Computed example of a mutant assay.
Amino acid sequence: MTGEQRDPDSLRLGHSDAWARAHIIPFAVFMGFLLLLQVFANFFGWEHPAAPWWRHWPEQWIYPLQTIVTLVLVAKWWKYYEFRWSWKWSAVGVVFGAVGIGFWLLPTVMYDRLGLTGETTGWMKWLGLAEREKGFNPAEAFGDGTPAYWAALVMRFVRAAVVVALVEEIMWRSFMMRFVSDWEGDYWKRPFGQASWKSYLLVTGLFMVAHSPTDYAGAFIYGSLTYVLCIWSKNLGACVVMHAVANLLMGLFAITYGKYGLW
């Protein structure tokens, strides 16, 4: 049997180094582009009416580049991922994704319903009650409804609902849950979705801090729900579907209600 024909389990057990690279590198490259965005904005960004769009809104070209490069890497190592796609668990993932993102969006909805203005403090701030209107908005750069606007928006949804869903679940659920459970041993041999308090607390905590403090409460609840789905379904594909649905709904909410700071 050739390497290309082997199933993900045999690749995981027989090629641990390549398996680890396949799980870590796409996520690392994805995060590297976020660092690039910060560096470019700090040293070359220019928030001025006369600034060209690529300097005023560098996310409008860095995000699409990030999306394409990361997708290429995921495709390169696709054979190493144990998705085990299932209609049943994918449907469950859809429900979990809708519920999870509902909790994530609730603080922003409550901010408006309570008639709050400006920046919140104390418990409201830590629960995520914020305006969330400043963020990714291609209409600012290209004009509402222009071809460039639609291209940027489509790529943003591909990034959120496809790339982020894949690289984060591959990293957090498929790799990190195994690694934190047995980092001094043969962690790659552990079955997917094996429950432990250590993996729950560490992976959920890391998932939280990978987001902004405003999102900590939502990320904790969402990460906990994903953990439940992971150990219940033993199905990475279900976790990816959950993440994809959640990010799709969040993006639709953001552009519908002008809450661009959510994404």
Score class of each variant (00 low, 15 high):
Ala148Ile: 04
Trp263Gly: 05
Gly218His: 05
Phe207Glu: 01
Val99Ala: 02
Trp172Arg: 05
Trp123Val: 13
Gly122Cys: 11
Ser10Gln: 15
Gly32His: 13
Trp197Tyr: 03
Glu133Ala: 14
Lys198His: 06
Ile25Pro: 00
Tyr149His: 14
Glu133His: 10
Thr226Arg: 00
Leu36Arg: 04
Trp61Asn: 11
Thr121Ile: 06
Val228Cys: 01
Ile25Arg: 01
Glu184Val: 05
Ile25Ala: 06
Asp186Gln: 12
Cys230Tyr: 04
Ala18Lys: 14
Ile231Ser: 04
Asp144Met: 07
Ser16Leu: 00
Leu129Trp: 05
Ala28Leu: 12
Gly205Phe: 13
Pro26Val: 09
Val29Thr: 09
Thr108Pro: 01
Leu11Arg: 15
Trp104Lys: 00
Cys230His: 09
Phe157Ser: 02
Tyr200Asn: 11
Pro138Thr: 12
Glu133Arg: 15
Met171Asp: 04
Arg21Thr: 06
Pro58Ser: 13
Ile221Thr: 06
Gln60Val: 12
Gln5Cys: 03
Val240Phe: 09
Leu13Val: 11
Ile101Tyr: 04
Met208Ala: 01
Ile101Asp: 00
Leu249Ala: 03
Arg6Val: 02
Gly237Val: 07
Glu133Leu: 03
Leu13Asp: 10
Ser10Tyr: 14
Leu35Lys: 01
Glu4Phe: 07
Gly135Phe: 06
Phe175Pro: 02
Phe96Cys: 12
Asn42Pro: 02
Val163Trp: 01
Gly115Glu: 11
Ile101Leu: 02
Leu11Glu: 11
Leu11Pro: 09
Tyr222Gln: 04
Ala217Glu: 03
Ala141Met: 04
Tyr222Lys: 04
Gly128Trp: 13
Ser181His: 02
Ala18Arg: 15
Ala148Gln: 15
Gly185Met: 15
Val99Tyr: 00
Met31Tyr: 12
Thr214Ile: 09
His48Tyr: 06
Trp85Asp: 03
Val72Met: 02
Leu252Asp: 08
Ala238Asn: 15
Ala210Ile: 07
Val180Asp: 10
Gly205Ala: 12
Val94Asp: 14
Asp17Gly: 11
Pro64Asn: 03
Phe33Asp: 09
Ala217Val: 03
Gly93Leu: 08
Tyr260Asp: 03
Asp17Cys: 10
Leu202Asn: 00
Leu105Val: 05
Val92Leu: 15
Leu36Val: 12
Trp197Ala: 12
Arg6Gln: 10
Cys230Phe: 04
Gly261Gln: 03
Val167Gln: 10
Ala246Cys: 09
Glu168Asn: 00
Ala210Cys: 07
Leu65Ile: 06
Pro191Asn: 13
Gly118Ile: 09
Met1Tyr: 08
Val163Ala: 05
Ser233Ile: 02
Ala41Asn: 14
Val92Phe: 05
Trp87Leu: 14
Tyr216Met: 03
Met31Ala: 15
Ala165Gly: 14
Trp19Tyr: 09
Tyr63Ile: 13
Glu168Leu: 01
Leu73Phe: 00
Ser16Lys: 12
Trp78Ile: 08
Lys259Phe: 03
Phe220Leu: 12
Gly143Val: 04
Gly193Pro: 06
Gly45Pro: 13
Tyr260Leu: 05
Lys198Thr: 11
Ile231Trp: 10
Asn42Met: 13
Ser212Arg: 09
Ala28Pro: 01
Glu140Leu: 15
Ala217Asp: 11
Asn247Met: 00
Leu34Ser: 09
Phe179Gly: 10
Val39Arg: 04
Gly237Glu: 05
Asp215Gly: 01
Pro138Phe: 10
Val72Cys: 07
Ala210Phe: 06
Arg6Ala: 07
Trp53Glu: 04
Lys76Gly: 01
Ser224Phe: 04
Asp7Met: 13
